[in-house]
Design a binder for these strands. Structure first.
Lengths: 158, 158
DNA sequence: GATAATTGTTAGCCAAGGCTAAACTGTTTG
DNA sequence: CAAACAGTTTAGCCTTGGCTAACAATTATC
């Protein structure tokens, strides 16, 4: 427990930066990030699968591998995991489908992704930078912030 | 290679969402995110160590463990890594110091963190949400976007 | 100053997400 | 229709970053 207050060698002398948040809050920040990391990749795969189905009619392992810049073996393994998680259905050597739940996740992810992407563009970020940043940021933006971003984008447009 | 165009089962029928980016660009997005992940944790540790030193005069493994909500064993192991990477110096059972390079990293991370945090607040996000989101987002915001965020924040203030 | 409490380290485990190489399946084509 | 090729899967490896349990060192306390 201890966050031992005693004997601080030199007091803050705050030349810049905010104070440290209280331990519990600080801990929760990191925990939230760690949790996000666990679902992040899963969501990326599901989102991409959804996009591929939407845009090309099917999702094949090879395409996923190419677009993710990852080996096919990795994709194959991941698909097994998605299967176990009940997010996709797949028969060996056949192309994939999203389950009900998978579709929901894809939908949510894509919506979030779009909000962040459009927000960044509305902010004035160039397209290719916005795409890269959005890909990384999307999993770390809370619903509250998302709402604010969306409002901002709409106001910018009209 | 193939991103096989032939025989798409059903054409887009784009009811929503942008088109898929070209494969190379798409791949690069994911690669950027993966790379960010590798350095992310390292940066978080270094940043926290820097903050602890700044605010309390020293960084002890127990404090790091508490603030990260992680076991002491994990911290200990991580410190060994940071050592190997030349980011901290540490003698067993003694508190840590950042190397030149570690300080630079801490500094950069903190600056980035602050920009994102202040930006979110300027956008209208409440403090505790902003803190959580900033923690996750900071590693995925490019320098370009960072600059834009900073400008935005400044304009909001005056 | 001996002992208790706190802090730090080590050993050994686990899951995730990469990889390559090799085996297998399905499809195309000579 | 057999062979070649493209796509998929499996096996087995590696690194990271968690964990617990056991042990070691330091610091505090009586």
């Amino acid at each position: 427990m201890s966050d031992h207050q005693q004997r601080r060698t030199s007091p803050p002398s705050g030349h810049s930066g905010d104070a440290l948040p209280p331990v519990e809050q600080h801990a929760q920040q990191y925990e939230t990030v760690r949790n996000a990391h666990e679902t992040e990749l899963i969501e990326d795969y599901v989102e991409l699968i959804g996009d591929l189905i939407r845009h090309r009619g099917e999702a094949r392992a090879a395409d996923i591998a190419n677009r993710m810049a990852v080996s096919q073996a990795t994709v194959s393994k991941m698909i097994r995991r998605l299967n176990e998680l009940g997010l996709v259905t797949s028969k060996p050597y056949r192309s994939l489908f999203l389950t009900e739940e998978g579709q929901k996740m894809a939908e949510t992810s894509r919506a979030r992704h779009d909000i962040v992407l459009h927000f960044l563009r509305a902010l004035g970020v160039d397209d290719s930078t916005a795409r890269i940043d959005a890909e990384g940021m999307e999993h770390h933006v809370s619903d509250k912030t998302l709402t604010i971003m969306q409002r901002f984008t709409e106001q910018q447009i009209k």
